[in-house]
Design a protein around this nucleic acid. Structure first.
Length: 215
DNA sequence: ACCCAGGGTCATA
DNA sequence: TATGACCATGGG
């Protein structure tokens, strides 16, 4: 079973997912921090709070008192930690010269700098690289591990960089960006509906669109 | 009442 | 390198 076939099967079933939800690149980045180990529905409430307070902006966020920012982020959970992380990120973002300056950096450089920010780990960095800076990086999350370990492609406990290298290998051309974008979104969509911690399908985690059944 | 969610950091061995 | 504790809300 190839990654391509999993992708095609998911795409045929669910169609394009139009990720990342968010109107601006900065909203995507903020969402990537806020969604750490958190349901997206909760993140949406926090983002709505930021918008209502005219605070979905790096300069505004860095100036906001901690207690005020934490209150706006409250529905997304971990609000004290996330207030610090979001402010760390915003301070870094401004110090680096903003989006235009960052967009000129080569992907490996940009990735290293993102990872140097306290509160930005590998998955959050890759969300930002792929969905805000449109770089060809494959996001490895718990869903990706779960789906592909159930399909027998990996064990699931490999370290992050090992899996990222494995998933990024073998694709060619500029289509990688769109492919990685859609693939990750489809994996999340499929996980929410079918590939749960307790799978609903008796055959495999892909349920009715199980590739093993399709072939 | 319990489980889960689009992780990451820090202390400890 | 590799565990474990911790962070906290809201929906099923």
């Amino acid at each position: 079973m190839s990654f391509t076939k999993v992708y095609r099967t998911l795409y045929r079933h669910y169609g394009p997912q139009h990720w990342w939800p968010g109107e601006t690149a900065f909203e995507v980045m903020a969402g990537a921090v806020l969604t750490q180990n958190t349901a997206w529905s909760n993140v949406e409430k926090a983002i709505a709070n930021l918008k209502r307070a005219q605070a979905l902006d790096p300069k505004v966020i860095t100036r906001l008192p901690h207690a005020r920012l934490a209150r706006l982020l409250q529905p997304s959970g971990y609000f004290n930690i996330k207030a610090k992380r979001l402010r760390n990120f915003c301070a870094w973002y401004l110090a680096q010269g903003g989006h235009e300056a960052l967009a000129r950096l080569a992907t490996p450089v940009l990735r290293r700098r993102l990872l140097a920010v306290n509160g930005i780990g590998p998955e959050t960095a890759d969300d930002i690289l792929l969905y805000a800076f449109e770089r060809p990086v494959f996001v490895i999350d718990a869903y990706t591990r779960r789906l592909h370990s159930r399909l027998g492609h990996v064990r699931g406990d490999e370290d992050y960089e090992t899996l990222r290298a494995l998933f990024e290998k073998g694709w060619r051309g500029k289509g990688k960006i769109r492919l990685f974008n859609e693939f990750h979104a489809l994996i999340v969509r499929h996980a929410k509906e079918i590939c749960r911690p307790r799978p609903r399908c008796a055959l495999c985690c892909l349920g009715e669109i199980c590739p093993a059944r399709v072939q």
